[in-house]
Nucleic acid binder design. Structure first.
Length: 277
DNA sequence: ACGAGAACCTGTTTGC
DNA sequence: TGCAAACAGGTTCTCG
């Protein structure tokens, strides 16, 4: 599901419904998602005001007064819906968390595969928490520079595609945007990471930033489960150059190659063997 | 210590 | 048509 552009789109959708709003009540309809909810989860949230809605990697962070942050991850199939007051909707089998706010509005978290999570962490120690401690830089920040990418790829013995989806290398890039960034940078996903440093790393750092920015501008990519908080779909899936386009003509002008699918580290990789080297 | 593969869970699509 | 296998945006554990 959701990679950085989708999570960022969800963050932007949640912000107006949550920032400055008070949480009235929280209902959990089961004991866990990917991990158990923390002790007294609902009680600790009730009455809190959301001071800021942020994102780190693929995590959504609702900062609360009182020093705690509600950490949320969409996993593969997680989705938030914002329901206006009176917009009744029968609870579905996979509606796991319901949050009432004084907006007034109801937030519903739905996740049929349950790879998502929700937990609470102390805001002051968030970066040292085990969920965040090992994360690499944000790809849209200055810290994700060609020099940084040079240094980190040089030490890796994996194909560059596997390195790109490793959250310790860069935070927020997943399977789709790794494929798309490598296509834009004209780098083969099979190339060993250690052989990328140099001009290729420079192209790759720029391609990662560009594809993520383009996808955010399009509201992310909707394949199966992802939708914005208002139910609208993202549009970037229409602009995929290689992802999920096995057998199709390579879109690069004058290339004429055909997109192929291979499996790397158990995940599908799509690329054009003719122009990605 | 690092990297590959399996596991987690459910729904949908593909293939025989 | 029907059933089984394969596959799906992520993360984390185990094993070699």
């Amino acid at each position: 599901m959701p990679e950085l552009p989708e999570v960022e789109t969800v963050r932007a959708g949640l912000a107006p419904a949550l920032e400055g709003r008070r949480i009235l009540s929280v209902t959990t309809r089961r004991a866990d998602l990917r991990i158990p909810f923390p002790p007294r989860f609902a009680e600790r949230l009730a009455g809190r005001t959301v001071t800021a809605m942020r994102r780190r990697a693929k995590y959504l962070l609702a900062e609360l007064d009182g020093g705690e942050t509600l950490v949320m991850h969409l996993g593969m199939s997680g989705r938030f819906s914002i329901l206006a007051p009176g917009a009744a909707r029968p609870a579905g089998a996979h509606d796991h968390v319901i949050i009432e706010t004084d907006a007034p509005a109801t937030l519903v978290f739905t996740d049929h595969r349950r790879f998502g999570l929700m937990t609470l962490v102390a805001t002051a120690e968030r970066d040292e928490h085990k969920l965040f401690a090992a994360l690499g830089p944000e790809p849209l920040s200055g810290a994700f520079s060609p020099a940084y990418l040079n240094a980190v790829l040089r030490a890796r013995r994996t194909p560059v595609k596997a390195a790109l989806i490793d959250q310790r290398v860069v935070a927020g890039v997943g399977n789709i945007y790794a494929c798309e960034a490598l296509f834009r940078a004209r780098i083969s996903p099979r190339r060993l990471a250690a052989s990328v440093p140099g001009v290729r790393a420079e192209r790759l750092a720029k391609a990662v930033k560009a594809v993520l920015e383009d996808a955010i501008a399009a509201g992310g990519s909707s394949l199966r489960d992802y939708a914005r908080t208002n139910g609208e779909l993202g549009l970037f899936q229409h602009r995929f150059a290689v992802y999920d386009r096995e057998g199709k003509r390579c879109p690069r002008r004058g290339c004429g190659g055909t997109v192929v699918r291979i499996v790397q580290a158990g995940r599908s990789t799509f690329h054009c063997p003719a122009c990605q080297r």
